[in-house]
Structure formats: structure tokens, C-alpha cells
Design a protein around this nucleic acid. Structure first.
Lengths: 370, 370
DNA sequence: GTGAAAGCGCTAACAC
DNA sequence: GTGTTAGCGCTTTCAC
């Protein structure tokens, strides 16, 4: 073990370089370099031998040298951006987690940085080029968070591999983007409830400041019209969940659902769609409190399909948000740009399918109990 | 704006180097380099001028060149490790999020990588040096997850700046570590309930495979003995929450709490401590179902103090786990090693104070309702 | 397909 | 405190 340890640490104090391999293979270092860059499928016998030697000797390329020479790193940077918040919200952080995992699965390297311009930014001002880009620490970026159109243009002006991710509007044609089709998910949810026989469906979402909430509302209204369901303001419930410092989504879901359940029969919904799973869990607690059975007396649909949806009793039907797929796509788009490959499709939309579990059923016949 | 854009992208295509500054300041490049490395507080007038010029010209050091020359990057790597799981759990990912945020706040760069040896690792086998280290992409590492003692020794043998983080046992003296004092938090929770007058306190935690759960149980048992409370196996409830694929913590909390509430008076707890907040939320739902008021008829304490604890109704008293502080400390320890500063304290323990909110009260007088 | 040679931008050892 | 010099490990011209 001592010997092995010595060997281990010598891997770091005296790492194998391209020159070492060249000497041993009796070729010029540049040949080794070319071999490493070539397609490993089609190698001449000589190159095959070089590659094998490199493996034997435990060669790992020094990425700093490569990045210095090339002028660009192969690490991808992720900018978590917020126009409104001084501190990143937990959803932004969880977005970052998904990106990290997607990166690891695809053998890509990812550095995250927060990019807060607070309230200082005006459309005239230039966005500063992010530090991690100027340092040449990263060769491309993924941008998540709240961006507006002039900012997209500025990202383009940096002329670096980039991809914006999330709820998007007016992305320039030449800037890569990966969005989430939350309208589709909402539509599917309403359609499902309508098909089960529900006519009185409530929607509980956050304020209209966030594009996501606006899109949810629009899709909801479009679907209720299309399926000829009860409409109007009384079915739209605004929950105060947008301020990360003070928001209490569980309590909001609980209290607002209690209010809905306590309405008179006519205006009492038989199904509720929640803008996130946490609100829905609060709703579940309210149903338990009023002894209303889910799903036989009340159908519930969550949004995001988090561990809460799978873990609850009953398990929640929820609109799935596939952050993993979104991030994987975004990372690939940036990687292709870094490698100068051509991109078949610059803009992608990740589907949000409705995951059907146990929290929905046809409405109770006759007057629902109260 | 066109002009500015040109300026922006030229920042990247023709970045200012140390040589440019040297030429303009009519000094040797090495003088500029030394100036950048010096303490900005105490500079000679000449150096002060150099620094100002650098700022004017928009100089950003090329980290690749610096890392190549120095032989080590200033980026910190984070290894998310798991002995048991093929895929990182959400708690591991959230750990990673906290680390990213702590890094951003301290102007440190962090790359995350997952390090899975699955079930293959044996004490005899050498751990491979992580890829991000061998590539020289990072100059030091933070290791989180489940580690055993022989693995600590191997990390030491890599002879790189390192710090292990999390629930720890038998860390070698010379390896930096930051732990979480979950025993202390559990002790405090029991003490608080005992002081309120509770004698029948149940603990609902995961299986004994995880060090954290073992420590929670030990601290619980020690405290119940010390405060002379009802003891024995009937107060320890095992929840199945350890398998990330199948775990349904909310449902577990719900069903197991129902069982507790349905016990006969003697063996029915007046307070329940949960191993995590999600279980506790399930408990809250069970209480609502049985129309048991929290806190007047049942006191509840969660663990981790997540957004669920703050957001629920009533708000949960919870044992706080300060991942942010833990990660900040760990990052600092690695940074100090990278910078060759001497470290006052190699081992730290982050406190887990009990955050008192609304879910605890003295037990109901007489027989609790059922 | 290969070898020769240059150099990416920076830091550190050395002499003064 | 400064200038000189060398070189970290790699990639990419160029000529053959």
C-alpha cells in the first residue's frame, strides 16, 4: 500500500506528459497530440500503439495547457441570473443542481457563477462580460434565470458559445435556447380533468410577475374556454409565493384550499390545479382537515413533479418539469458550439407531460360534501 | 452601442495581457505580475500606478496561463461521493447547491464532480485520483458524502489540499474536516420538549445504515435517559426513507404518525421528533386527519430546517442544519491550503441549534383526545 | 502522416 | 524592488 500510495502521489507530482509518451514511442510530441485529438475509431497501427502507451503510462492531459494554447477552456459556465433578487432562490439553486448532474453524466465540466445585476441594469447599459468568461475559465455559457430581450442581444454580442434556458420569450434566432413547454402541460392537465367530468376547476398560482405564471394562466384559460368549463375570476386563486424571504407555500396552499373547500356548492371547485407541488401538499393537508377525501371528493394536480409529488399520500398527479433533460440539451448545445460542430436545431422546447398518479378521479356524484 | 459591442467582443478576441500593461507602464512584465500578486494595501507609488493602468485597460488575468505555470489551478473541486447509490440523491445535490452558493459569495470557483465507486470499492483497492484533479482542473477538493476511514487515508495520500464534509467519524488528524453537530441538535430538541413537560416523546428516523441516523438515535437515547423520560423500543419509529428510488417520506410520515396517534393512551406520544422535515409534514397531515391540534394536542419537531419547516402551517420547530456555514468553512479551509496559509484549526463542527417556531407546546392536560 | 519550431500568458528562480 | 531568463504542457502552423 505504501508503494501504491507513492505511485498515487507521483501521478500528481510527476504527471505523465505528451513528451514522455513521445520519447517512449520514439515519435515527435506533436504526433502524440494529434493522436489524442483523432477519432479513436480510425487510427493507423502506429497511432493505436501510441494511444495504448498513453493509457499504460496513466496519461491525463493538462487542461490548463490545452486551454492556454487553444485560447479557450472546455469547461462550461453556468450563469444563474436574477433581475429581481439579490440572492438566488432555491429554485435557481436546484436548477443548478440539475445542470451539475447532467454535466457529470455527460462527462462535461461545469462551473457555476451567480450574475446579479439587481435593479441597476437598464436597457442602455452594457452587461459586463461575466468574470468566468473573461478569465478564460470557461469556453461557453449556459444562462438561466430571468432575462429580457435586450439582454439576449447582449449575450449574442459577446460572441461566445451560449445557450439560454428556462421560461423564454423573444429569443433571437441565432442564440441557442432550451425552453420548457409549461403551456402544454397545463393544457393537458385541464383536458384530463375535463375528461374525468370536472366542470369546476380552480387554478392556484403565483403572481403575474413571472413569465411562468403568466403562461400557466393563459394556457389554463385557453383550455377552460375550449372545453367549455366554468370560467371567470373566481377560479383563479393567487398565492403569495414569489418572495423567497417571506413565502410560505405550504401554509398558502393550506389556507387558500380551506377557503375553496368552504365555498358554497356552486362556486366550490371539484378539482384544483396548483402552480407547484408544495402548494398542493398544503392543499392535501387542508383536505385532511375538512375530512374531504382525495381523490374521490376532490381532485388535485401539482406542478413540477418533485419528490413531494411522488412521496405524498395519496401520490400527486403532477405536471412534470424535466430539468434534467432541459439541462442536458443546453449543455450539449454549448458543447457543440465549443467544438465547432454544426447545430441541427438552435431552439428546443422540453415537453411537460402530465404524470398521472392517485390524486385525480371523477367528481363525486350529486352535491359534494362540505 | 455598436461601438460598445465591438469593444465588448474585443475584450475577448484581444484580451489585455500582462505584457500590454508592462509596455504601457514601461516596466518589465514580471513587475506587473508581482504587482498583481502583492497586497493592494501596501504598494509603492509605481506599483499603484501599474495597478490603476491595469484597471483602466480592463485587464483580467488568464487563469489557464497562471495555472499552467504554477502547476495548480485555483478552482476548487467538489466530489459528491456515495458508497451505496448509483445516482446522487437529492440531498447530495442540494449539498452541492449550498457549496456553489457559498463559493459564489466568497469569490471562489467551484467545479462539482460525482465520484461513484458503487459497491466495487474494497479497503485494499486504491481510490483513483479524481479526474478533475489529474487534469489539473482543480487545485484542491472538498469531499462530501459517505466516506469511511481507509478512504480518508487515501485522500491524504493524494497530497492535495482537501477537506471532508458532513457526517464524519475517525477523520485523520491531518485531514481537514467540517462536520455537523447533529447530536447536539437532537439533545437540545429532547431537552426542550422535556422542559415543556413532555414525558412520552417518539423519534421517527431512517435506518441505521447512515451515520447520521445512528448519531440521532444515540443522542436521543442519551437525552431521554438523562431527563428520565419514558424509554424503550416503542418510542423509536423506523421510517423507510433511505432508498431514494422508492422512498415516500411524506406518506411514511403520514402513515406512521397515524399509527402513533391511534395507540392507546399509555403508549401514545405527546411529542414526536422527526428525522427530517418531510416526514414531519406528513405527520402534520396525519394530525389534521385525526383532528389532533398541533401544537396544543401534539408537539412536533422536524430536522434540517428546510423551506418546508418555515412554510408549513403551523410553522415547524426544527433542528437547523446550516449547510451554508458548513460549506463556507470547508471552502475556506481548502482555499487556505491552496494559498499555503497556515490553518489555525483543521477540524470544525457546525452547530445545529433548535429553531423554535409554532409546533411545540406543553402537553395537553389529562388524557389526550384520540 | 510526420517532424520541426513557435508560442499561448504567466510565474519564479536568479542576479543585481 | 526590478529586469532577465526560462519554461509550464500543449496545439498548430509550416514544410516535407
Amino acid at each position: 500500500m505504501n508503494e501504491m500510495n507513492a505511485d498515487m502521489s507521483s501521478q500528481l507530482s510527476n504527471p505523465v506528459t505528451i513528451d514522455d509518451i513521445a520519447k517512449r514511442a520514439k515519435v515527435h510530441p506533436s504526433t502524440v497530440s494529434r493522436t489524442m485529438a483523432a477519432d479513436p475509431e480510425k487510427l493507423t497501427p502506429r497511432r493505436r500503439k501510441i494511444l495504448e502507451m498513453a493509457r499504460e503510462m496513466g496519461y491525463t492531459p493538462n487542461v490548463n495547457a490545452a486551454a492556454l494554447r487553444r485560447g479557450a477552456s472546455d469547461t462550461i459556465g453556468m450563469l444563474v441570473v436574477s433581475t429581481f433578487l439579490q440572492y438566488p432562490t432555491s429554485s435557481q439553486l436546484s436548477t443548478a443542481s440539475f445542470a451539475m448532474r447532467a454535466a457529470a453524466e455527460n462527462a462535461l465540466r461545469l462551473i457555476t457563477d451567480f450574475y446579479n445585476w439587481g435593479t441597476q441594469w437598464t436597457p442602455d447599459a452594457d452587461l459586463p462580460i461575466p468574470q468566468i468568461v473573461r478569465e478564460r475559465r470557461v469556453g461557453g455559457i449556459i444562462a438561466t434565470g430571468t432575462w429580457a430581450q435586450p439582454q439576449f442581444d447582449q449575450i449574442l454580442s459577446w460572441k461566445i458559445p451560449a445557450c439560454v434556458v428556462g421560461q423564454l420569450k423573444n429569443v433571437p434566432e441565432s442564440l441557442c435556447s432550451v425552453g420548457m413547454n409549461i403551456r402544454g402541460g397545463m393544457y393537458e392537465a385541464v383536458q384530463y380533468l375535463a375528461a374525468l367530468g370536472h366542470r369546476k376547476i380552480a387554478l392556484m398560482i403565483g403572481g403575474p410577475k413571472h413569465i411562468a405564471h403568466v403562461q400557466q394562466q393563459q394556457a389554463f384559460e385557453q383550455a377552460t374556454r375550449e372545453f367549455n368549463l366554468a370560467g371567470g375570476e373566481q377560479w383563479l386563486i393567487r398565492a403569495d409565493i414569489d418572495s423567497p424571504k417571506t413565502a410560505r407555500p405550504l401554509a398558502e396552499g393550506y389556507h387558500l384550499t380551506l377557503q375553496l373547500l368552504d365555498r358554497s356548492t356552486d362556486s366550490r371547485p371539484t378539482a384544483i390545479i396548483y402552480g407547484n407541488d408544495t402548494l398542493a401538499i398544503g392543499g392535501l393537508q387542508a383536505a385532511a382537515k375538512r375530512d374531504v377525501d382525495v381523490p374521490s371528493e376532490l381532485s388535485i394536480i401539482g406542478t413540477s413533479d418533485t419528490f413531494l409529488a411522488v412521496g405524498s399520500e395519496p401520490q400527486l398527479t403532477s405536471i412534470h418539469e424535466d430539468h434534467h433533460q432541459m439541462m442536458t440539451a443546453a449543455l450539449r448545445l454549448v458543447e457543440m458550439q465549443i467544438r465547432n460542430q454544426n447545430i441541427p436545431q438552435r431552439h428546443m422546447l422540453v415537453d411537460c407531460p402530465l404524470i398521472k398518479r392517485q390524486s385525480c378521479a371523477p367528481p363525486a356524484p350529486g352535491t359534494p360534501g362540505s
